[in-house]
């Protein structure tokens, strides 16, 4: 154990090591632990929406089933694959930065960020269809009116709840996709600057953890909202 002051200006305290940590390992563990605690908070925040969704679905199952047919499960599945793939590339970015392969890390990070944009693009297509069909949340819901009939059928007005929850859940998730992509963008910038090495790749690891969280939320969201109704 180094005494409190002997570590200033000494060679054994690398530049990336903050002054209140003794070893890189301690700093790395603290960062990762902090991220896991943060993931817990995110799970509980999204969890609240899932609880609301499951409760209202349990109350009006037939309405929810009818309403979910208006989502495009093909686009949802495509987005699932995109996110799963981006999770793979994020994990590979961590791997290559652990091995000190800077260029590979750059490539994997760029693919991950590109996937985020593909995901948001597909989301945009989905959303604009919903807007067009009057499948809007709450009081703006108009899909029960004859002019929005779909294959000659209209939805019951009570389906507004399904779309309220759909937009809240996918909207909040989309926001997290954007935040995650920005975070990975910052990691990418630092990677290009040459901050990382096999001894120090904490931000890559943390950014990737966040990105996997975004994936985790979607893993539950997709079957519950798109498939089961």
């Amino acid at each position: 154990m180094a005494s409190a002051h002997s570590d200033h200006g000494h060679g054994d305290h690398p530049k990336f090591l903050a002054h209140h940590f003794d070893t890189p390992e301690q700093q790395f563990d603290a960062a990762k632990f902090g991220m896991w605690v943060f993931i817990v908070t995110e799970i509980l925040m999204f969890g609240g929406l899932f609880v609301a969704y499951l409760i209202y679905k349990g109350q009006e199952p037939s309405v929810f089933i009818e309403a979910h047919r208006r989502l495009d499960w093909k686009l949802g599945s495509a987005n699932t694959i995109v996110l799963l793939f981006s999770s793979l590339t994020a994990a590979l970015a961590v791997r290559s930065s652990q091995l000190g392969k800077k260029n590979e890390t750059t490539m994997w990070l760029m693919i991950t960020i590109a996937c985020a944009f593909v995901f948001m693009g597909i989301k945009y297509v989905e959303y604009s269809h919903k807007f067009h069909d009057g499948l809007l949340p709450g009081r703006y819901f108009t899909a029960h009116l004859p002019e929005h009939a779909h294959n000659g059928q209209v939805l019951p007005q009570r389906a507004n709840m399904y779309f309220a929850l759909y937009f809240m859940m996918t909207g909040l998730h989309g926001l997290h996709v954007l935040i995650g992509a920005s975070a990975l963008g910052y990691v990418l910038y630092r990677n290009l600057r040459g901050d990382f090495s096999p001894e120090y790749f904490t931000p890559v690891e943390i950014g990737a953890l966040y990105w996997h969280l975004v994936d985790l939320v979607w893993i539950y969201l997709f079957p519950l909202v798109y498939l089961v109704g």
């Binding site: 703006y140 009570r158 507004n160 709840m161």
Partner: peptide, 19 residues
Amino acid sequence: LLLAAERTMGVGIFDPALG
């Protein structure tokens, strides 16, 4: 967040009139 969405966008999750 739901409460704010309810007031600003009328999502209706806590509003009996909207189910």
